[in-house]
Simulated assay, not measured.
Amino acid sequence: MSPHFTRTQELILNRIQRDMPLSADPYAGLAAELGLDIDELLAEIRTLKSANVIRRISAIFSAQALGYSSSLVAFCVPGEEADEAARIINAHPGVSHNYLRGHRYNIWFTLAVPPGQAIEDHAGVLARRCGARDFLVLKNEEMFKIGVMLAVGDAEPEDAPLAARPGGAKNTVQGEDEVLAVTLLQTDLPVVKNPFARLAAERGVVMDPGLLAQTGESFKERGIMRRYAAVLRHQNAGYRANAMTAWKLPVAREAELVSVFEKCPHITHLYRRTVFPGRWEHPLFAMIHAKSDGELEGIIGALARESGLDDYLVLKSLKEYQKRRVMYFTPDFGKWAEKYLSGV
């Protein structure tokens, strides 16, 4: 059963998932754009956050542009040990998403590590501590699509704008002021008037809200920030079925076949990831969100028919162990490395 939202809530949810224009007071600008009184806007957002529809409002950064390495990692762990393994994995500061899935590789998580450190070293330490029988580091070899909006009400699904690809010195964070801007912009935006001023005050730092907004817009232009937007808890927004699918495709037809998946409005993330011959040979990963199990099955079936691909895996989430935003430029990474990476 789909949740019931008022027309005003639908308007807010469909807009706030898209890239928000940054200003000294982002909510004031958003209220003016939507034709709402700012107090009404803030009250509705508070209601939607209290109902766990809006998960958070913050910057979505490119880990690569910040100098971090990131990857999807899959562990093969005995079923009875999965929960304890997840607890160990979740304690790593670079783990954002972590799920139990129905496959031999049953724990799937995303992992980010700071500049100068190797994903393989971190994953290897975690694998040993979890007693994993095998593990895969499935790096993003090419990104085709990321961040489709979850349409609420009668709105049509749409793609989130893709930021410029990072590259070159100007497309990395420069100096202490920009590092400070990252730490502020990655924090969940308080639902108050003048929220950037509140963020700085809560952190005990000094940064002019206008300068913070200007720096954020510069991050977007340079491909450092993908967008500044709300992330919804998809189940509570009406999308109660989802699956990570992995497809085996002939290399010679990649461009042709990928276009089939790119056009599907229900696919929120689409990547080509690392192949491990004999261990993992399904490199095209497509994350699909739907409003029901029946709709999900129909979407997957339609993709198989249109692409002609019949060798694919449907990896449904059996349990969500963690879903959070990685907090970059924090001391937690150094503490974890000092404790577990010494001698690696």
Rank of each mutant, 00 (worst) to 15 (best):
M1Y: 10
M1S: 14
H4G: 11
T8N: 14
E10D: 06
L11A: 14
R15C: 03
Q17F: 04
Q17R: 06
D19V: 12
S23Y: 06
D25F: 04
Y27S: 09
L30M: 06
G35T: 09
L36R: 03
D37K: 13
I38F: 02
I38V: 13
E44R: 13
S50T: 13
N52K: 14
R55Q: 02
R56Y: 11
I57W: 03
I57E: 05
I57R: 04
S58V: 04
F61W: 05
A63N: 02
A65V: 01
G67R: 02
G67F: 02
S70D: 05
S71K: 02
L72F: 00
F75T: 01
E80H: 11
E80S: 01
R87I: 08
R87L: 08
A91K: 14
V95P: 03
L100N: 11
R104Y: 15
Y105L: 06
I107Q: 02
L111D: 02
P114G: 09
P114F: 05
G116P: 01
A123S: 05
A127M: 06
A132S: 06
K139I: 03
M143W: 00
M149F: 00
L150T: 04
D154L: 10
A155V: 03
A160F: 12
P161H: 12
A163G: 11
P166M: 08
A169V: 15
N171G: 12
Q174P: 00
Q186G: 10
T187E: 12
T187F: 09
T187N: 11
L189W: 03
P190M: 08
K193M: 13
F196K: 12
A197S: 14
R198N: 05
L199K: 15
V205F: 01
D208E: 12
Q214Y: 02
E221V: 14
A230H: 08
A230G: 09
N236Y: 08
A241I: 01
M244F: 11
A246P: 04
K248C: 12
R253Y: 12
R253A: 13
R253I: 07
E254I: 11
A255T: 14
K263F: 12
C264D: 07
P265E: 14
P265S: 12
H266Q: 14
T268Q: 04
L270C: 07
L270Y: 05
Y271Q: 08
R273W: 03
G278D: 07
H282F: 11
L284K: 07
A286W: 04
A286R: 03
M287W: 07
K291Y: 02
D293F: 00
E295I: 03
L296D: 05
L296I: 01
E297M: 04
G298L: 02
I299K: 02
A302D: 11
R305V: 15
E306Y: 00
G308N: 11
D310M: 09
Y312W: 00
K316R: 13
E320S: 08
R324I: 10
R325V: 10
V326M: 01
Y328A: 06
F329E: 07
F329T: 07
F333N: 01
G334C: 09
W336K: 08
G343W: 06
